[in-house]
């Protein structure tokens, strides 16, 4: 049976649980959340991250859309306060954006900067970060928000290679991986190839959330589908 970890999203674990599957986000696997822009993909990822931190599950967080300042601010809107977890070392942040703006922030033990246009360096930091969180707890979480920015700065084939290496590294280490992607931001062919890298897919379209998983299936396709809303405490899924 596949091991899972709580998603931290009210209603989501209940929606995804079956006889063979405890519900939630699978460990030793990487899940892709995708959908049109502004449908709550990042909120989902951050809610998952924060739930882990509150439950002593460390997180490797790669931020590619927003720098660390923006990240902490946008999480604060939901009363998710990252600062103390940055200080305690429970979150390991790889910041792919701040350097691009010409900001030279100093690295620390659990905060590393890199440029999103340098995938080889990103993978090195992912390697070091994975080791760091793995040693804290083997049931760690690993979040990348978002792959869309990576596609904007690199050849598409290159990004697919990098994500493939990243997924392998995460799955090997046993973490619960989660990435986001904005539909339509690459060619159709790349998008197809991207989706095929994952065996657990979550689509959010603004109203409905749909889960498609290779190891958690149902005869009734509507079983893993529900409406969701975004409130001041984050996402809530009806079930």
């Amino acid at each position: 049976m596949i091991k899972t970890t709580k998603s931290g999203i009210p209603g989501f674990d209940e929606l995804t649980s079956t006889d063979e599957f405890p519900g939630g986000i699978p460990l030793s696997r990487t899940t892709l959340i995708y959908g049109p822009p502004k449908t709550g993909k990042t909120i989902f990822a951050n809610q998952f991250t924060y739930d882990g931190l509150e439950n002593k599950l460390p997180c490797l967080y790669i931020t590619a859309d927003q720098g660390i300042k923006q990240l902490t601010m946008s999480m604060m809107e939901f009363n998710w306060f990252l600062q103390s977890y940055i200080e305690s070392g429970d979150i390991y942040i790889i910041d792919g954006i701040s350097q691009l703006g010409g900001v030279k922030l100093d690295d620390s033990v659990n905060y590393k900067t890199t440029t999103i246009g340098n995938p080889a360096e990103l993978m090195i930091k992912v390697g070091i970060g994975s080791r760091y969180v793995y040693r804290k707890c083997p049931d760690f979480r690993s979040v990348l928000d978002s792959t869309t920015t990576m596609f904007a700065f690199n050849p598409e084939q290159m990004v697919l290679r990098v994500l493939n290496a990243y997924i392998r590294r995460n799955n090997e280490a046993g973490g619960a991986g989660l990435m986001t992607y904005t539909e339509g931001s690459t060619t159709d062919k790349t998008e197809q190839q991207l989706l095929s890298l994952f065996d657990n897919l979550i689509r959010m379209d603004g109203d409905t959330i749909t889960i498609k998983s290779e190891y958690n299936q149902s005869e009734n396709p509507d079983n893993f589908k529900s409406v969701y809303s975004i409130g001041e405490k984050g996402i809530v899924v009806d079930h």
Partner: peptide, 9 residues
């Protein structure tokens, strides 16, 4: 020639 994740630069 580096395996992804190994420092090369």
């Amino acid at each position: 020639s580096a395996v992804p994740g190994v420092e090369c630069e």
